[in-house]
Design a protein around this nucleic acid. Sequence first.
RNA 1: GGGGAAGUGUCGGAAUGGGCAGACGAGCGUGACUUAGGAUCACGUGGGGACACCCGUGCGGGUUCGAGUCCCGCCUUCCCCA
Length: 931
Amino acid sequence: MTTDYIPQDIELKWQQKWEADGLYRSVIDPKKPKHYALTMLPYPSGDLHIGHWYAMAPSDVRARYMRMQGYNVLFPIGFDAFGLPAENAAIQRSIHPHTWTMSNIEKMRRQFRTMGTMFDWEREAVSCLPGYYRWTQWFFLKLYDMGLAYRKNSPVDFCPQCNTTLAREQVWGDDRHCERCNTPVIKKELEQWFLRTTAYAEELLDFSQIDWPDRVVTMQTNWIGRSEGADVTFVTETEDPIVVFTTRPDTLWGATFMVLAPEHPLVEKLTTPEREDAVRTYQHQAARQSEIERMSTEKEKTGVFIGAHAINPVNGAHIPIWIADYVMMTYGTGAIMAVPAHDERDFAFALKFGLPIIPVIDRPDGMAKSFVLNGTADVEPLAQALRAASIPFFEKGGSLYVTLAAEQIDAYVELAERHVRPGCWIEVVGARWAFVFDDGAVPFDGVAADAAILARCQALEPSVADKRTVMELLWDVEFYRDVLFHHEYGTMINSASFTGTPGNEAVQKVTAWLEERGVGTFAINYKLRDWLISRQRYWGAPIPMVYCDACGIVPVPYKDLPVLLPEDAEFLPTGESPLKYHAGFLHTTCPQCGGPAKRETDTMDTFACSSWYHYAYLSPYYKESEPAHPDSLPFDPEEGAYWLPVDVYTGGIEHATMHLIYTRFFTMTMRDMDLVDFDEPMLKLRNQGIILGEDSEKMSKSRGNVIAPDELVAGYGADTVRGYLMFGWRWDLGGPWDSHGIDGVWRWLQRVWALVLELGEDQGAPTAGEVADLRRWTHKTIGRVTEDMEAFTFNTIIARLMELTNVMAKAKQTAVYGSAAWEEAIETLILLLAPCCPHIAEEMWMRTGHPYSVHLQAWPAYDAGLAADQVITLIVQINGKVRARIDAPADISEADAREAALTDENVRRYIEGREIRKFVYVPGRLVNIVV
RNA sequence: GGGGAAGUGUCGGAAUGGGCAGACGAGCGUGACUUAGGAUCACGUGGGGACACCCGUGCGGGUUCGAGUCCCGCCUUCCCCA
């Protein structure tokens, strides 16, 4: 008589035994190959949610699998324990962030243990403890010594009501108001600390050493945003140089104005007195917006002229300087040359503000258009001439709409000259820019022509009197709109001696010429910015810097680390950092001169802590009681030499850019500090998706669609929850929770339990065929599950095991039950199940008389010979449609297959009286007869 | 607007070095057992039908003996960036 499967009776028991036995302690063993499996460390919010399980349970399965494959596996866990929520709890509920965080961690440790993961808890690292963050500070000092940490002015979101800086998530709504008091947020310049990530931009673009998802590689590549071009120096009429970065130096002759970011430092100096009010107002308004809003192409363009002019270095043209919010101080140099004919945003801006738009790059498609307004030409004869010349056009309301291919343009201009009526004109636009008047064609080729043509048109036609530029006049003709602007590369036009330079050489030639003349240089620009790590908060690692009136900025000596967070901080309801008002913390002595000095009160971004946590796990709180020095090691070198780098890293795709760039940056700097001898922190990366609520919405307390793992574990046991999280979705995609779906896994484990442990009936000796069938299934399953483990396709692992269970349930009714093949199948099933559902596997392993522990066993060996089919179903297709299925030996020859197919009754019906044109034979699969 | 991913039964999803579409599970249906446990077991379950047949993997083309899978063009959804 067998007991029922009651997970509550076995799970805790085994968890305690495994822990007592130190089954998952990871100890260096030079005889075994190592495998460092890492899952992204959680933030200690205080409650383990199903997303943590979804991230960690399959990762644990994979780590356990690698262990059974003979690897010495390290699978550690810790907590990313600094951050804003703890500080908010302190303000709102008067709990110290440390107390709040540590009690959350304690609760989550208990929850984690119910998952049955193989975490090595002795390597746990908590980033908010001094033994941890002193090394975070140590890294900061090293980076400072290397010139990779520096201070500069940078804007922060600031609430004027609360008089405090705000984190990004504290700014709410489209109107960007303070989450606490609803006051509109403003930008404020503040001296802040940066890490020079851009110094590694080029190396960060190299992914050749790592196996990461294409998605992440693409996102990082776009994030870094490398572009080649030129830095070009414009000089103002007051002789101030303004450097602009452009990817299109070939369009320089079309630069008809210049735009500075509203916060550009030169704006104040250059603005003329009569423009000052307008500029101030505009700057204030721009400061209130987010960058995303500012860069939106949908948004109506805004900007103001500052009254000054710059000189275009290629043609000496004096061009007006504007400020506009679509130019960002943080991209390039904070100033652009505007080429409205070939940049979409510049085009919209110029059109709105009546600035000249001069085409300087030919259209690569050679297309031109001409609209002959009713009355401006002798329409009938012109139409006839066009037909004679095979020029396509259509007529509507007495007007002609002509579309020209490149080679037709010259002929058309001649026709237009001949047919234009006195006092009228006809335009040609696109691949040719010309106005055909009654006395001949005038090319539209520059700012002077723009003014001249416009004046002449206005003299002839009063209705265009309000137009400020030729392009504005042309924009009124809907028919023209698709040819007025383009941003392709093409032959240069209207560009003095460069006119005629082909598009594929233009950028390079112009850049060389600029360099020769000393007005520009080849330049590479990155969208990637240096990492702003200053946070005006308490609950983070203090930046170990001191400000001395005499010595300036002085780093805290290594031996004095850590700079401890004071425990008796006072948390103000304004959210202001308590460090700024903590006299004991703030006032110190200068490490250099011993005089009075002030400490830096900014703390570090938590991404700094999480950039090196996988090194901290090797030897948590390393040498905590010894003073540090510049040549210290932040982790045990013996552990590092054995375990590093991380072999498999798993976590959410949301960290594709920030965290995963920062941690690569850290490792590259650590290599340059001679701390490690490799370039990349994590060799293989795999991402899991997100589990949504049953309503297909993101889980949230306010929606009431949260699935609590604790309740599921209490009801079904951890093994069922783990199994369902593997089985329910493609791991990389995730999807909505299904409260019925989990029952399928639950029932399956019940069936497995009964299959393995309940006695069957002895049916005597099995036939060789029965034995071979069962062994084939056993080995097929080993092969497939192994492949799926390697590929991180956890859903099919469970599906394959269910399939084997179904086969075995039938086999149990036959004479194969009790045979050696049966015992092999049972043993294999338990072993394959062990990484997925560790508790039930251990219990069944024990009850079937095996020695403790199933988790110390080797992964079952796959025998391809046993897995191979002896008999196959040969598919017979006629003209690609399945017409028969014939049982045949797996190694059937083409001749035999042909014979078998052609003698099949159903096949004969189809080929009778028809000629066989082709016979396709795919060995072991199918034949296709073409008739 | 740019980049990426994905569109397969009622649902989650299988099957891509082209070769039996729908594995495995959920749900539903029928039956058995009889019991309260979220039962269990057996069988069925893409659509249509003149039941030895036809149609079916977002839509429209193409390549091929053969396309869910490859190519071209579109549509929709999601994610990231703007």
